[in-house]
Amino acid sequence: MASLSFLLLLLLLAVSATFLPSSMAASPSFRTLDANAHFFNPKLPAKSFSSSKKFEGSSDFVNLRYHMGPVLSSSPINIYLVWYGKWSVSQKFLIKDFLLSISAPGPRRAPPSPSVAEWWQTVSLYTDQTGANVSRSVVIAGEHSDLHHSHGTDLTRLSIQQVIATAVRSAPFPVDHRNGMFLVLTSQDVTMQDFCRAVCGFHYFTFPSMVGYTLPYAWVGHSGKQCPEQCAYPFAVPAYMAGGGPGVLSPPNRDVALDGMISVIGHELAEVASNPLVNAWYAGEDPTAPTEIADLCEGLYGTGGGGGYIGQVMRDGEGRTFNVNGRNGRKFLLQWLWSPVLKACAGPNALD
């Protein structure tokens, strides 16, 4: 029975992944809204701006249900960061600026709308069985740098839990199974089981037998050298699309891999918050292969999106593509999320 249980646990590790985008966009049309930013859609013709497509992906067939498990409702959500491999100071600052942009700041410090905090409002609509909402406050409660790849540079879904166990023992991070989560980020020289081939990130929870506790976590990999055309889309596109697909969009922070990675981090954080132990919010009957709130909106970034179109997003005066604003003047491109109220994909940059 012990060996059978272990096999079942391995099977469960296949859940909750950010899968590679299944479709791409094409050349842009423009619509000027003010002197500093332009809304544009990399595929739809200009006449499409007259149609109302505020919330894309709407369907009566989507059966997203609550399965009675917890959500991350305690305020704040404590994120424990594990930097696996070598990361530059500027890369760390960029990712941490995104994470800290999730919390709604005071009115004097609020970034322009649409903002990352407004994007997270969709996640905060999800509740547990007591009616408690996902928290709208996030802090970085601890960081651990594993510079020398304590578990090698070729990881598996199971060995990522060993990385977390090492961080817990050496940091030491507090045991925070009610208020927090681990976020493991691997550097560009690290390979991961199924990375690039099938997924760009995934989330799950740790096994007490490996870490000592049941703790929600997410993993996201750096795709800079391995597969930017898959995991940093739409800032990089596959070679087979050259001449027939979209022009490569300019990343908002001038870093193709990191800007693409932040979009995946956002995807995984939204799903951890609403489904931390894979028994809360998801569609489908099989918990080993759930369809979660970000999966339902994969590839949608703005009004008019769907069917391979990313939707109408924004471009600043320097040509950088984004759809939300963050702290310290940062800009990000984040996919939309499924709203339990609207029963559709939604984001703060919707045009109507």
Rank of each mutant, 00 (worst) to 15 (best):
residue 177 H to Y: 04
residue 124 S to V: 04
residue 216 P to N: 06
residue 182 F to K: 13
residue 83 W to Q: 05
residue 181 M to E: 12
residue 196 C to K: 05
residue 26 A to I: 09
residue 253 N to Q: 08
residue 132 A to Q: 09
residue 120 W to P: 03
residue 141 A to P: 04
residue 12 L to G: 15
residue 286 D to Y: 09
residue 55 F to Y: 14
residue 68 M to G: 01
residue 132 A to I: 00
residue 115 S to F: 03
residue 150 S to H: 07
residue 50 S to G: 15
residue 254 R to H: 10
residue 49 F to Y: 14
residue 339 S to I: 03
residue 95 I to L: 14
residue 114 P to R: 05
residue 120 W to N: 07
residue 50 S to D: 14
residue 226 Q to R: 09
residue 139 V to L: 02
residue 85 G to M: 01
residue 166 T to P: 00
residue 269 L to W: 09
residue 314 M to L: 13
residue 69 G to A: 07
residue 159 S to P: 00
residue 183 L to T: 12
residue 290 P to N: 05
residue 151 H to M: 12
residue 122 T to S: 08
residue 123 V to C: 11
residue 329 G to Q: 02
residue 233 Y to S: 12
residue 135 S to E: 00
residue 137 S to T: 11
residue 236 A to S: 14
residue 6 F to D: 14
residue 139 V to E: 13
residue 13 L to P: 00
residue 279 N to D: 15
residue 122 T to Q: 08
residue 56 E to H: 08
residue 37 A to H: 12
residue 126 Y to L: 00
residue 45 P to L: 04
residue 322 F to K: 07
residue 287 P to D: 14
residue 131 G to Q: 08
residue 236 A to Q: 06
residue 340 P to A: 09
residue 328 N to L: 09
residue 55 F to R: 07
residue 293 I to W: 05
residue 292 E to Q: 14
residue 270 A to M: 10
residue 254 R to C: 10
residue 153 T to A: 06
residue 215 L to F: 13
residue 249 L to R: 12
residue 50 S to E: 15
residue 80 Y to C: 00
residue 251 P to Y: 06
residue 301 Y to C: 01
residue 173 F to T: 05
residue 38 H to A: 07
residue 347 G to H: 02
residue 4 L to G: 03
residue 234 P to Y: 10
residue 80 Y to A: 01
residue 18 T to R: 12
residue 56 E to I: 02
residue 131 G to E: 06
residue 127 T to H: 11
residue 82 V to S: 04
residue 342 L to P: 00
residue 93 F to K: 11
residue 53 K to Q: 14
residue 189 D to N: 13
residue 198 A to T: 05
residue 31 R to P: 00
residue 169 R to W: 04
residue 331 K to L: 11
residue 81 L to C: 01
residue 223 S to T: 03
residue 78 N to A: 10
residue 206 T to R: 09
residue 37 A to Y: 12
residue 229 E to Y: 03
residue 290 P to W: 04
residue 97 D to E: 14
residue 193 Q to S: 14
residue 29 S to R: 12
residue 250 S to C: 11
residue 345 C to Y: 15
residue 13 L to K: 13
residue 340 P to L: 05
residue 23 S to T: 06
residue 6 F to P: 00
residue 278 V to F: 05
residue 28 P to F: 14
residue 276 P to Q: 07
residue 44 L to V: 05
residue 208 P to D: 03
residue 94 L to F: 10
residue 179 N to H: 13
residue 50 S to Q: 13
